[in-house]
């Protein structure tokens, strides 16, 4: 199971999403969960007690959107539903999906 190409993400309200492992690794949080000898690494299941199914679904959408476009230039923006925006922002923060550090940040 640990070597499977796919992992399972579980939301607070019990939805399960099967995601390509490589796509999910964009999140450093998930990467950390899948490393070493955590139970997540053995079972390939990550439970998010803070994230609702609706939000996690969007997050999973994003993982695949990111994976499809990982080497492309001029990527069209993914649509974010306005009503989910804030909750999705919290989830993105939790999963460490931060913008890459800019050039101006030289320190």
């Amino acid at each position: 199971m640990a070597d499977s190409k796919y992992i399972t993400l579980v939301s607070r309200d019990g939805f399960e999403f099967v995601v390509l492992r490589e796509a999910a690794l964009v999140s450093p949080t998930i990467k950390g969960m899948l490393r070493s000898q955590f139970i997540e690494a053995r079972t390939g299941r990550c439970c998010f007690a803070e994230i609702d199914g609706v939000i996690l679904e969007k997050v999973v959408d994003y993982f695949h959107y990111w994976y499809r476009n990982r080497d492309k230039e001029e990527v069209p923006d993914m649509e974010i539903p306005v009503e989910l925006c804030l909750e999705l922002l919290m989830a993105a923060n939790y999963l460490n999906l931060e913008p890459a550090t800019g050039l101006r940040d030289w320190t």
Partner: peptide
Amino acid sequence: DGTYTLGAKSLMTLCIETLAKN
């Protein structure tokens, strides 16, 4: 702007842009 990167924008950036628009 120095914000050019290959690949997709981060989810956080997308959310914040949507938020700013609305």
